[in-house]
Simulated scan of single mutants.
Amino acid sequence: MKKSIGVLTSGGDCPGLNAAIRAIGKAGRNRANIIGFLDGFRGLMQDRTMRLDDASLSNILTLGGTILGTSRDKPHRMPIGGEVRDMTDAMVEVYNHHHLDALICLGGGGTQKNALRLKEKGLNIITLPKTIDNDVGLTDVTFGFDTALEIATDAIDRLHSTATSHSRNIVVEIMGHKAGWLALGAGVAGGADIILIPEIPYDIQQVAAAINRRQRDGKRFSIIAVAEGATPIAPPEEEKPVKKKKKSRAVEIAPSAHVGHTLELTNQLEHLTGLESRLTILGHLQRGGSPSAADRLLATRLGAACMDLIEDGVFGVMVAARGETYAAVPLEEVAGVRKNVPLDHDWIKAARKVGTCLGDAPME
C-alpha cells in the first residue's frame, strides 16, 4: 500500500524550492501519494492542498519561487481574526485527516524550529534546509545560497563601472541579518574593496581610512559590500554623538530600520572621505529568478534522499548536505542553531590576504 506524504514550503522564497519539490514528487511517485500544502503552515492549518503529480511537477525544475506558495506563519503563533493563536493542534488534525505517513517541511532556521514543534506533537517530520543566507546549522550549504551569491556578485561587477566613471563610493547592501555568508562571498568574488558583515563589528574610521588610502594610491572609487545586519562598534557611552536630522543625498526612499542604518553609513563615508557616496539596495532581487545549476543539483539530491529516509522509517530529522552525500540530523540538534561565518574561515583569510578591509583593521 502506498504511503501518503505531505509537503510544504515555509519562510522566505528562494531559488531551488521547486527543484526540491520536483525531486520529492518524482522520487516518490511509485511509492507514495504526495500532496502539497499551500502557503506554508497556514495552508496546513486550513487544509488547502494541491496534488503533486506528474502534471504539476512538469517544467518546474528551472522556476524560481515555489509552486506551493509560502508564508512566515508559525504554528504556535498564527494570526487568526485579529488575535494570535496556537494552531498546532489544528495542524495535527489535518495531518491525521489525510492519513499522512510523513510531512516534509522545506525552509530555513525558523522552519526547523516550527517543524520540531510538530514533531513533538507526534508527527513524522522531515525537513530540507533552504535559505539564501546559508545560515542553517549543521549542513554544509543550503539551497538558494549559490543562486543569490551569483546575483549579488553580478551586481557588484556591474557597479564597478559606474563607481569608477563618477569617482564614487558605492555601498551595496546585501541580504543577511545575522550571518554574513552572502555579503562575504559576493564581496570576495566581486572584488569589493571593503566588506562588512554581522560577525565583525566595524569601525567607521577604519573604513574611511581604507578608502582614503585607496585615493592616495590613485584609485578613483571604492566598492563597499555590506550585509544588512552589519553593525558598527558601539562607542563608549560618553563618546556617543548626538544625531542631527538632515536630508539624505544617497537615496530617495523612506528607509526601514536596516536601510536606515546602511544609509547612515553611506552618509558618514561621504563626510569622512569627501567622495560622493551612493547606496544600492539589492533587496529581493537576490531571491528571484531561475536557480543555478549548483542549487538545482543540491535541491534534487536532498529531495531524493528525503524519500529514501521516509522509506527507511527515519523521521524527526533534517536532510543535511555533507560533501556529495547527505546526513540525517535530528531536529533537536538543528532547531535554534544558526551557522555564522567563523572568524578563521578561509573566505575571511583570503579577503584579508588580498587587502580587503573588513572594517576592523587597516588594509595591509
Rank of each mutant, 00 (worst) to 15 (best):
E238M: 05
T88Q: 11
I67D: 04
D133V: 08
Q215Y: 03
D86H: 09
L44H: 00
G336C: 12
R51N: 06
H99L: 01
S277C: 05
G81E: 11
L184G: 14
V317W: 00
L68P: 03
P236S: 08
G229C: 04
I5S: 02
G12N: 08
E199H: 04
E332K: 10
S248Q: 05
Q286A: 09
A163V: 06
G274Y: 11
M307K: 10
K113C: 03
T49G: 07
E270K: 04
K121T: 08
T262E: 03
P15W: 11
I125G: 13
S58I: 03
G190T: 06
I67P: 02
K121W: 00
H98I: 00
S10V: 09
M307I: 15
A115Q: 09
I24Y: 07
G122T: 02
Q205G: 06
D54I: 02
P291K: 11
L17P: 00
A305W: 08
G65Q: 08
M50E: 12
H160G: 14
F315V: 06
A210T: 04
T153N: 07
H76T: 04
K240W: 12
V251M: 12
E333P: 03
T356N: 10
I60W: 07
G108L: 13
R338E: 15
L297P: 00
T153R: 05
D193F: 05
C306H: 07
G16F: 12
I5W: 01
L57Q: 03
I151E: 00
K353I: 02
A225W: 00
